[in-house]
Amino acid sequence: MSKRWIIALKVLLHALCLAPIAHLAWRFFYAQDTFGADPTNYITHFTGNWALSMLMYCLAITPVRRLSTRLGWLIRFRRMLGLYAFFYATLHLITYIWLFSGFNVASMIDDIQKRWFIMVGLFGWLVLLLLALTSPTWALRKMGGRRWQLLHRSIYLAAMAGVIHYWLLVKAGVRSPMPFTLVLGGLLLARIAWSLWNGRKKRAKLRSAAVSTQTA
């Protein structure tokens, strides 16, 4: 993939990732009734859903890339998708602080102390914050590849926190978090299957290498 193509695709991807929030803003100015009777609730779900969606797209990059060696270029969009997940998660948090709690510090502290779904959601956001802060290339260089990679695997923790957060807040019997749960489950399975398969391949390679040195 040429550099020019990468740039063009990045511009396209930025546009796609910003489309939901642009759409929301457009509707705020031109079609307010589409927010329904309780826009607070609507905007909360909207930003939360997009944060989770972006996380899933981001996590899907690696398994899809492994399908073929020719898909290696996909990795160049992973950071961007992760940062957009953080962007929508932050909008989600702002919605909670501003529209939901009305900047009422006492009620927010009460929420954090008493309510699991708030705690789990906040934990997920903090993980994303940490990953966003360490996302620049210089941070990777400073930390060293191995440590950086270890830290950035915690994106799975953030995704799990996001999905658990969703399940904790819906009423019993409501299954709207199910699609995200299934997708995340599939992505985790793909990850585990890959490392098992890869591990066996590596061991086999080592074994054959050992055999060849013995015979030599």
Binding site: Q32, D38, T40, S101, G102, N104, S107, D111, R115, F117
Partner: peptide, 22 residues
Amino acid sequence: VDHPRWSQAHERRIGPGFLPKI
């Protein structure tokens, strides 16, 4: 008495305005 998952101390009053009032 809180709902186990959220506070019942306040409510969002849905009125004629765009955003409900807390």
